[in-house]
Amino acid sequence: MKLVVIAGPPSAGKTTLTRQIVKRFKDEMIIAFLKIDVVKAYEDIELKKEFGILTKKIYSGDLCPDHAGVMVLGDAVEWAEENGADLLIVESAGLCLRCSPYLNQGLGVIVLSSISGIHAPEKMGAMVSLADIAVITKIDLVSQAEREVMIQKIKEVHTKIILMETNALQGNSLHRLYKLIQDSPEIDGKNLILKGNPPLGTCTICIGRKEIGWRHHFGVVQKLDGPVAEYLYRGE
């Protein structure tokens, strides 16, 4: 089975891109799709209805969606393999911008919209830098010069990433992505590990305490101007 993990900010076009990938491969592969989101998502229902592929979703609720992804991905790979899938596509929300859901195997794809602002790629850290491929969507909404400015910015920050642009609604110029998916090796589900170091500390915020101010919390906490030695604070 092949694996594609797609991440990116809300409304970047992850599902729209997924639709194009599914359209391209549905006649030659059994496709399974997993959506990880925080509170609400309809992708699983829509994609199942549209293409009749295997779909599943999980809400991360109080957890960071990438944290939730780490927890459930093992099961998801088993589920897809048991159902004979040739390709598993995972769509993550990845909202905290500190994590990245990409794995040591398969392809990691970051989806960025041309209209998300020129500084977005810099701000998104690991979600961009650890991806194998960046797909820039919504190029139909901006000028050619602005597209090139955006690409240049990403290239300067992330030198190794494979960049491509598309109007995801129409699926323009995605042959390169399809080829990379086709050529990506089968994964070994027993040896999947995260590419990045997860900053997923368990703390009182993670379990739902709402009080503001580091004095109220323990675990991984931080003061505004605190010295490095006090970074890990264990509570009063």
Binding site: I115, L141, V142, S143
Partner: peptide
Amino acid sequence: TQNTKCFAD
């Protein structure tokens, strides 16, 4: 292009 808007800050 037909679009005359720039989004880059």
